[in-house]
Every structure is written in C-alpha cells, then in structure tokens.
C-alpha cells in the first residue's frame, strides 16, 4: 500500500467520521440552531466523499444546491417559524426504546447486505471528464427525465409561490 492510498484513507475516514458525527447531531441535538448547522457538516462531508469518488460534478452540485440552496431555505424556515430572539431554541424529540430498536434492526440489515456484496467490484476508469459525459447524457439518453424534471421544477416554483404568499383578503 503506497503513501498515496494511506493518505486517501485518512481523508476518507476524516470525512466519514465528520459525516457520522454530524448526522448523529442532526438526529439527537436538542438545540434547533445546532441541528441546522450540523446538517451543514453532513452536506460538506458528503460533498468531500463525492470528490473522493471522482464525481467532480456531483461535488460542485452538492455544495451549490444543498449548501447554497436547500440549507439556506431550511434555516430561513426555522427563522420564520420560531421566535428567534432566543439562541437556544429547543427541538423536542419523542424518542422511545421501540424506535431505537427498530432503527438498530434496520441498520443491522443494511450492514449485512453491504457486507455480503458479490465480488464483481472494479475501479471505474473514465477517460473523459465526467462533466462532459453528464452533459452528453442529459441531452441523449436521459433527455426525457431531464425534460420532466424541468417541468416539475416549474410546477414546484409556481406551487411554492402560491402556497407561501399572503392570503389576499377580499
């Protein structure tokens, strides 16, 4: 094992631990603000993992859409639906032993499936830049989903504006 791979592994474990810890905080933290900013850690570490997996376009898209878009939306929603003067907003959770047991069983099943993967794994050798392949694919093989998605986005835009606007009193 070369030094290069050891370094990659260290980066991988750093990112993975950040992601795990942050998602744990999202699940259990009792402070609303901390919860929202823990999600930031999850999103960034996942973006880093995409980078490590050579999905460079996904890396940029994750940060651009999730961090710059969705997370900001979520934080705005928290600000608009709470009395924000208080920093320590509580975020109740109704945990019970049943829930924990079910989630643990789910996790065990998923890990079992992951560990019993067949041995057909090989490294993906791309000779072209990924962005170019994605661009070509969007306009050839996955043209239909692309178009449907654009219509869906338009519908969401209009729907969100309609839902969030103030009621006009007749």
């Amino acid at each position: 094992m070369s030094l290069n791979e050891i370094l990659l592994n260290i980066i991988f474990y750093a990112l993975a631990l950040t992601g795990l810890f942050s998602s744990f905080m999202v699940a259990t933290s009792t402070n609303m603000v901390r919860t929202a900013f823990s999600l930031l850690g999850v999103l960034f570490s996942f973006a880093g993992l995409y980078g490590l997996l050579r999905a460079d376009f996904l890396f940029a898209a994750q940060i651009l859409v999730y961090v710059g878009g969705i997370l900001v939306l979520i934080i705005f929603a928290i600000m608009l639906t709470h009395k924000i003067a208080n920093v320590n907003l509580s975020n109740e959770s109704t945990s019970s032993s049943t829930v924990i047991a079910v989630v643990c069983i789910l996790f065990a099943v998923l890990v079992f499936i992951a560990l019993t993967l067949p041995e057909y794994i090989k490294i993906n050798q791309r000779n072209k830049p990924l962005t170019e392949m994605i661009g070509n694919n969007l306009l050839s093989d996955s043209l239909l989903p692309f178009e449907i998605l654009s219509v869906l986005l338009l519908a969401c835009l209009i729907g969100a504006v309609y839902l969030a606007r103030k009621e006009v009193k007749e």
């Binding site: 859409v65 999730y66 969705i70 939306l73 979520i74 929603a77 729907g159 309609y162 969030a164």
Partner: peptide, 11 residues
Amino acid sequence: LAAAEASVALA
C-alpha cells in the same frame, strides 16, 4: 428533486 421537495415542503 430534493431541491424541489424542500421548496414545496417549506412553503
């Protein structure tokens, strides 16, 4: 889809 879903859900 996550972006679309988040915007509608927050609305």
